[in-house]
């Protein structure tokens, strides 16, 4: 068999195999604009090197040469990086990084179905993307926390100022992180889990 000209069969390296006992998985979605550090965050907590899954979207081109009356189709391929954390012998957690811009929302249907919740990753130099993402998650009823990935030279705001700027309700956790750091990224996931746990006791105010 010849897959992309490589001599090796496609599949995980031996050390990346899950135990046969792995019975079920759960997922968390990390969402944010390009370059905000999604892949970095996923990679720093993942037990496997982050992998990429692609989805293609076909849609009618808008405003392009339809002189001949032929509807032009454009193909958009969107890559999602993901990683994996084995929770115990039976349970596996997957983390997906997905772009936040509206034109990629077509990916969200399958992705958010059954997801535990989401991390909205924010770069203070570009808050705009976060507004749309937060609104969209609220509309879908997906619980989320917001993590500010601190880049050198990026403006630093007091957390409460950011909360106001993002128009974020009080009950939604807002944390700072360094996506390159394993424990910092782990803490973001912990913040999400604690928040989700609190919701099992006190449902989110509507």
């Amino acid at each position: 068999m010849d897959f992309k000209g490589s001599d090796t069969l496609p599949g995980p390296r031996c050390e990346d195999a899950l135990p046969s006992s792995a019975a079920a998985a759960v997922k968390i979605v990390v969402v944010g604009g390009f370059g905000v550090g999604k892949t970095t965050l996923v990679g720093s907590v993942s037990e496997i090197r982050p992998l990429t899954t692609e989805e293609t979207m076909t849609r009618a081109g808008v405003g392009v040469d339809d002189v001949a009356g032929v509807e032009r189709k454009t193909e958009t391929t969107v890559a999602m990086d993901f990683g994996r954390i084995s929770i115990d012998e039976r349970l596996v957690l997957y983390l997906f990084g997905t772009p936040g811009q509206e034109r990629f929302w077509f990916l969200w249907n399958g992705l958010f179905d059954g997801a535990l919740g989401a991390v909205v990753l924010v770069d203070t130099r570009r808050l705009e993307v976060s507004f749309d993402v937060i609104g969209r998650l609220e509309d879908r009823g997906v619980p989320f926390v917001v993590a500010v990935n601190t880049f050198p030279g990026a403006p630093r705001y007091p957390v409460e100022e950011l909360r106001t700027a993002l128009d974020l309700p009080d009950y939604v956790p807002l944390v700072e992180c360094d996506a390159r750091d394993r424990s910092s990224s782990r803490d973001v996931l912990m913040a999400l889990m604690r928040y989700l746990h609190s919701l099992t006791v006190t449902p989110e105010p509507q």
Binding site: V45, I85, I87, L93, M190, M193, L196, H197
Partner: peptide, 11 residues
């Protein structure tokens, strides 16, 4: 959720 938190703490 508690199981997941347990697993994350071991990271």
């Amino acid at each position: 959720l508690e199981a997941v938190m347990h697993g994350l703490q071991r990271l």
